[in-house]
Design a protein around this nucleic acid. Sequence first.
DNA 1: CATACGTGGGA
DNA 2: TTCCCAAGTAT
Length: 370
Amino acid sequence: MLAAFAGALLNWYQSQQRSLPWRSSSDPYQIWVSEVMLQQTRVETVLPYYARWLERFPTVDSLAAASQQEALAMWEGLGYYSRARNLHRAAQKVVKEFGGRIPSTVAELRMLPGIGAYTAAAIASIAFGVDVAVLDGNVKRVLARLFNYSGDVKSARGEKELSMLAQRLLPPGQAGDYNQALMELGATICTPRTPACPRCPVREWCQAQQLGLQHARPVTRKRAPAPRRVFAVGVIRKRGRVLLTQRADDGLLGGLWAFPSVSLIEAETGASSGAPSNAALDLQRGLRQSLGVCISVQAPLQTLSHAYTHFRVTAYVFDCDWLAGQPQGQLRVKWLPVSWLVRYPMGKIDRSIARHLARTHAAYAPHPGL
DNA sequence: CATACGTGGGA
DNA sequence: TTCCCAAGTAT
């Protein structure tokens, strides 16, 4: 029974799997990079990043030898930047503590930053053939439907019970292909919204499908609505250069560069009129306090909106002149010509501002008299 | 156990 | 427009 299920799944995977670059590789480093990039990220999004990353960092040694800034620059736009910082740190740990060889056991892999339960099992099984089952979002969904599991798959109990099931179903000696087959099924057939049950190679084993409950599985609880945040952002000019700050390593967009900004008191719902003019004054006062720079606000440049996972941002961007003071405080800062900004990794909003400045570069050229 | 952490695409 | 999601991890 179990063997028949695994056989049907494996057989389907051999003929129907997508051709993906990391599947044609047996290099543990390449498998590792793919698994980290694929965390919470779609295959189509990862593809170009994966190619560029391996071109720039072809081996774990080359990554370890690079700077964190280079790693972040290659990661820009992919999101969840702690993945890049952790991958970089982990590469250095592999070189220093594992002799440059990527460890092959789940326990050792878990010692590396950025490698949790899923990624350790994925690398161990796919790259080293260890008989360990993976449990990611795809596998949870597939198993919840196969067994008509009615518990919350994201609770601790759900994780544990599905993990037991996954390990029990694993065919010894074929963990790598089997794990990928289960995930591939979840990604292409057993999808969240509209599963293609008629095309499913294992539908005869699926309890939810036979009960017409495939849309009701898996059970998850819904999350809280995203709050709204408002920021004032300053493009501060001084002799043809603009001021950039580096964000703290922890927290949002950690390690990336950004234009100086202050958080504004959230406006009442719907009553946003007048906010930009107040924002200019708040920006002036806020940057004097936090950075120690005195600025004059010249003109509003643009207003940007962006949706993060847990909140929504509106940013009022202002053109500012530096008046006095030296940047000081917690954050690292640099005065940079606009044309240099491209080399500094940024989040989406700040990159958008940087591109805007590049388009209007003439306005930011050094003053002839200086 | 709950929350923070990005971005782009589909319904 | 708004909401939800997509090969998770760290705290």
